[in-house]
Simulated assay, not measured.
Amino acid sequence: MIPAIPYLQALGLTRDHLILALGLSYTVSTLALAADLGARGAVTLDGAGLSALAVLPGMWAGQKLRARIDPILFRRLCLLGLLMLGVEMVLRAM
């Protein structure tokens, strides 16, 4: 997802269109990962159902928060999140 996020942000999409594009990207990649893990026996339907149920409160909170945040602040927070993920990956590799 790392290449997709900066690319989508560089397109200059509106906040709602950016979230839609990111959501579609995450959904496709998550389904592909789930299919692979399921084929290898690493995921059960019980665990997948519980995980899907846990996503709902986060989606609801994200929609409420997104409606209240300034678009520029929203972009900065997205980029800050990417930076934090990058730093974590570098630290983990050390």
Rank of each mutant, 00 (worst) to 15 (best):
M1D: 04
M1K: 02
I5P: 01
Y7I: 03
L8P: 00
Q9F: 00
Q9S: 03
G12V: 04
L13Q: 05
L13W: 06
T14R: 13
T14A: 11
T14W: 02
D16A: 15
L18H: 01
L18Q: 00
I19Q: 05
I19C: 11
L20E: 12
G23N: 07
L24A: 09
S25N: 06
V28D: 02
V28F: 00
S29Q: 09
S29C: 05
T30D: 05
T30G: 08
L33V: 10
L33S: 11
L33Y: 06
L33E: 11
A35M: 12
A35Y: 05
A35F: 08
D36Q: 04
G38M: 10
R40E: 09
G41P: 09
A42H: 14
G47V: 03
A48R: 02
G49D: 07
G49A: 09
S51F: 09
A52G: 10
L53E: 10
L53Q: 10
A54I: 04
G58Q: 06
M59F: 13
M59G: 14
W60T: 11
W60C: 12
A61D: 11
K64P: 00
R66Q: 08
A67Q: 14
R68N: 13
R68T: 14
I72K: 09
F74G: 09
F74L: 11
R75I: 04
R75Y: 04
R76A: 08
R76W: 07
L77I: 02
L77M: 14
L77H: 04
C78L: 14
L79N: 14
L79G: 06
G81W: 07
L82Q: 06
L82N: 01
L83K: 05
G86P: 04
G86H: 07
G86A: 15
M89C: 15
L91Q: 15
L91K: 15
L91T: 14
L91M: 15
R92T: 13
R92E: 13
R92F: 15
A93T: 13
A93P: 08
M94D: 10
M94E: 13
M94T: 15
